[in-house]
Nucleic acid binder design. Structure first.
Lengths: 203, 203, 203, 203
DNA sequence: GTGTAAACGAGACGGTACGTCGCGTCTTAAG
DNA sequence: CTTAAGACGCGACGTACCGTCTCGTTTACAC
């Protein structure tokens, strides 16, 4: 059998050092916070983690993947997400949206989230991974709350829930991304009100 | 007399070579299309443009600025923008949104626009420039059309027009950015309908 | 009980795998021939020999030692060496020197012998080993023949035999090493004649 | 005209920085003395010289070439070499040989000369360069002295002078290289005596 | 016209980081 | 307990670009 140019010799995951994996992800996370995405280098991650560069190259295909993983590891602590359901959709959404606004306004979230965004915009593969691992589960939880509202007659029964989420979140997301306006609790409220009017059940 | 630390010796714009400027912008544009934003290097731009590296560093502060300029030069052909105004807001907006959707779906726009987006997300300064030079004028034209609609009673008189634009465009923009759904003419129509319902004049 | 710094844990030679040892030496020899001394790596030897790297490190202290051993294994096939003794010293030496010249001129000997030389020049320890295992026995055989000649009155009785060997062989060795001249049978003859004149018995 | 795979873009020697060249050669020389040939790395030379690695790779093809050059630069200070000629060949040669022995015994010469030797043995190209730039001129000076001796009837008129030099120097060189014996003034004297007997004029 | 100062192309420079290779050590599983 | 296999921390490799710094050579304005 021909071997061709000899395939890249893939490593055996069973022997992977969990210690090193964690050290790399930690170092990546901290460096991104300190320096911002594009001033982080693989050499710096390796040095900070006390790890050989090869160990990074062995397990991740690119700097982006490491950093993506490091951020993902933060959120994916496995807990299943659940939105508040007091029966009052508008109040519940305002609670959630105000929290989201606060999160985006927190400077500590700035660097890693921008890093994540850059990754996802620039790399279709990471975008898919992002949707699967991060936004997917969260969106599903949100849609669950919306379905509950539909059953309660607070939202049009035939509303496209993906679209509802877009109308609710995309303006906020865009404003943050382009820095085109302030992220205030009032803004959060406004988005909820507008969305509910847009998808109000037919009277 | 001593010169001290001597200020950075800024060049005289009057003597700037238009030939070189164009060559650089062209080269940048083409390289971004061919390789994508982050595989483009200043060295490559200079080589492709047949220009010394110093000529680039003399007139632009960073790679981002060159590429930003090169994309900006495309759009800013100076024509003042004007949206259609047939008197039917919904129809006019659908026309415009369908065109926008088509533009985003065009693969030829993909590389430069993603490059631009990455710039703007990552660099607050470029974000400001972007709002001033690109999105600003376009948004102003859109808002002009919306004001006309307000006068015609087709839109709530007290609607925050910036917010209207966000609700109209941000979902589309986000869908494109995260590749989270198809960009179809129907989607464009839906966004218009929802937005108009959200900001309908109080009956 | 504490082990303290614990000595380097020397392996038990009785359990050594002869199979592995041979495979390593063979692989080393062949790789030196193919690639030359300094492009051979321990990793390559281990891979070619189908042996774990640790097995090499367990039994040899350095790459040099492995290669040295591999070349040594070739020659040291245990036979005791004996020079011809027809009674005519000049004729006998010419026979031997012509053979030596031919050996050095053989391209198949080139790579390993240069490798050996580099080792020996660079590493005093290997130099000692070389003298003990390789050149020593051969030189002793040569000196035996010279003593026979001294008894026969063909060589000064008080000649320093080590010096005789140096005068006889060093020029040849240097010429080969620096590639500073051709190695011909005539050259071999000339060296013998000169040496015999230099150490002729006092008339 | 086809460009092929694009040739390696050779640099323009006119623009070469003499400052950097000297700094590299100095650094190389000192590092070889401190660490010995094979523990010197190009990175270390560049760092010590305060020079970018690329500057070394731009002008030298290999570590060996740098170090070779650095040693060569020492000797090649252009002075024409001249051996003493008192009319007494034996005395003159003993003077020279004793000096040579002393030089080889000097530990300060040890590291660079072994480095040079390793280079020359391992690389035919450097061997040629070595003969041309270093050993050539020196040997020519020695042969000049020998010719003078031939005219004075102190050496066989038909002696092959290259061979005379080999018989004179190669034993010393080999003894140093293999560390097979002490390098003493007496040894130097002995070599001269033996050589002169071997190439004595026919009585 | 001519002189002179600028901007220009070219590209060498000191650096940083890249992604790869090999070192010598350490760990695991099989015999 | 040795072995084959191979991951590990480490450090050097040779390359690509960075942004700065000369080099001559245009080029265009002031004389």
């Amino acid at each position: 059998m021909l071997r061709g140019v000899s395939s890249p010799r893939k490593p055996n995951p069973a022997r992977r050092s969990e210690r090193s994996r964690q050290a790399v992800l930690d170092a990546a996370r901290r460096l991104v916070s300190e320096l911002g995405y594009d001033k982080v280098s693989i050499e710096a991650i390796a040095a900070r983690a006390g790890v050989g560069k090869q160990t990074i190259y062995r397990w991740w295909p690119s700097k982006g993947a490491v950093i993506f993983d490091s951020i993902l590891a933060l959120s994916a602590d496995g807990e299943s997400i659940r939105l508040p359901d007091t029966g009052d959709l508008e109040a519940d959404l305002k609670t959630v949206m105000r929290a989201t606004v606060a999160e985006f306004a927190d400077p500590a979230f700035e660097a890693p989230v921008r890093a994540l965004t850059l990754q996802v915009v620039g790399d279709p593969g990471l975008a898919a991974l992002y949707r699967e691992k991060l936004s997917g589960p969260v969106d599903e939880a949100k849609k669950e709350r919306l379905r509950s509202a539909q059953r309660a007659g607070q939202l049009a029964a035939d509303a496209d829930l993906d679209l509802v989420l877009e109308v609710l979140y995309a303006p906020l997301y865009q404003r943050w991304q382009l820095r085109s306006g302030a992220l205030t609790p009032e803004y959060a409220d406004r988005l909820v009100e507008i969305t509910l009017r847009a998808f109000a059940p037919c009277a």
